[in-house]
Design a binder for these strands. Structure first.
Length: 236
DNA sequence: CCAACGTACTCGCCTAGGGC
DNA sequence: GCCCTAGGCGAGTACGTTGG
């Protein structure tokens, strides 16, 4: 009998390409996941996964089963949501991911409004980096995530919420007027302080700097911050 | 007729160990 | 190191029996 559990395990295996890591993501041991994948293959009568030394690769049929299986999983989540909330808008549990460079600035402003307008909504928030949020949205661990566009990712619907001005933080004694537009060539990139690897704002800043060099930009200082407020303090 | 109880079975998991 | 198999455990379920 094909089960939703098996489809969830297969989806994790497709994402991680590794039985052990997929099992860890599903909070089970590797043999438990392996047995469910094996059962699924026997039920469907096809080989879904090529077990090669050092890597696990989905077969062509396997990829299609994953694609259709994720549709089934999404529909099952939708069915549960509908039954629990009987079609009401923004009621019940909503898991929302937010990137760290947005969360502390945006959430305090929107959470009170959400609570006022949708008192039946039980919001569960998760703050982490873009890559993890995308994986969680794809796996269904998150209902939605607030990220910086563009994503360059297939299989995820996006909705633009707002434009955010890209600002350069400089020490208070910097002679340039606050309203001045700055081009990449006006920035001393050897003294640039950025967020650490994995933050999309870091990548965006480096991409902006690259427009002055005509090629990839390198992070300036050896220091990399884990939060935007640390960056601002270091600049000050 | 129905609820309560006991037993057997199934399912999903784990750990241990083996093969590649 | 990675995955599979074997054996065992616990929880849940199906089903038969019993008593009110």
């Amino acid at each position: 009998m094909l089960t939703l559990r098996q489809l969830r395990y297969l989806s994790a295996l497709a994402r991680h390409g590794h039985f052990g890591r997929a099992a860890e993501a599903c909070a089970v041991t590797q043999p438990a996941l392996s047995m469910q994948i094996g059962d699924l293959e026997r039920t469907l009568g096809v080989k879904l996964v090529e077990r090669r030394p050092g890597e696990v690769v989905l077969t062509e049929v396997g990829r299609e089963v994953v694609r259709r299986g994720e549709d089934v999983l999404a529909m099952s989540r939708d069915l549960v949501d509908f039954a629990r909330h009987r079609g009401g808008v923004l009621t019940g549990r909503l898991t929302l991911g937010v990137i760290p460079s947005l969360a502390p600035y945006l959430l305090p402003r929107i959470l009170p409004v959400l609570q006022r307008q949708f008192p039946e909504l039980r919001l569960e928030l998760r703050e982490t980096q873009t890559r993890q949020l995308l994986d969680d949205v794809k796996s269904g661990a998150l209902d939605a995530a607030m990220l910086a566009l563009p994503l360059g990712e297939t299989g995820i619907d996006t909705l633009k919420l707002f434009d955010d001005t890209f600002l350069l933080a400089v020490p208070a004694d910097d002679p340039r007027p606050a309203e001045q537009r700055i081009s990449a060539s006006q920035i001393d990139q050897s003294r640039l302080i950025l967020l650490e690897d994995g933050h999309c704002l870091r990548d965006q800043a480096l991409a902006f700097c690259a427009t002055a060099r005509g090629g990839p930009a390198a992070a300036g200082t050896a220091f990399a911050a884990s939060s935007l407020s640390t960056v601002i303090q270091m600049v000050a």
